[in-house]
Amino acid sequence: MIVADKKPVEEIIEYVKDCKKLLVLGCNECVTVCEAGGKKEAGVLASALRMYFANRGVEDALVDERTLERQCDHEYLEEIRDIADNYDAIVSIACGVGVQFTAEKYHSIPVYPGVNTCFLGATEQRGLWTERCQACGQCILAYTGGICPVARCAKRLLNGPCGGSSNGKCEINKELDCAWQLIIDRLKAIDRMDLYEKLFGIKDWSTDRAGGPRKVQREDVQI
């Protein structure tokens, strides 16, 4: 899932301090799971903003809250079509995709981000999310035992480990596992060390962000 972290309330207040009618817009998907931008967080932020305005003496301030199933799909974003014009601004606490899609759809209303979008990752335990995928556009997990060196090796090495690997840890951080140590351990466990013997050729990074903004176009599902 897309992992995000809450922005400090101070930062959000700075964006919206001159607004009088605000909509805090949550998202029911990834940001709900990582407890940054779901219905619960929308309620907390809206309540904090209402009290902030009231405490400043802005008596006619209005802060509403709404949580959509997703903010990255037209159909769900259309649900606020009838009410969007009631607001001076929207604080979207979805990921960066949701913020941008909301801004595109409601062109004349300022949309401010309420979270910092961090990475594609997994929930290791409650309150701990770690990166697993960098969406490079050309998956090599079949050859690396299901562990991604692009996302998990600090150097993105395709033929690792490097000399900075020590006792299974990475030189950049003693708590960080060396991705290539994990790959080797896993290849041994599945009896596929033959894959480790093969050298990776130069990866085509044009499908990564290096090739500019990307798109996936599927004619088989397009009408």
Binding site: P8, V9, V44, Y52, N55
Partner: peptide
């Protein structure tokens, strides 16, 4: 933390 931030 939130209360401190908003001035309560």
């Amino acid at each position: 933390k939130i209360l401190n931030t908003i001035g309560l």
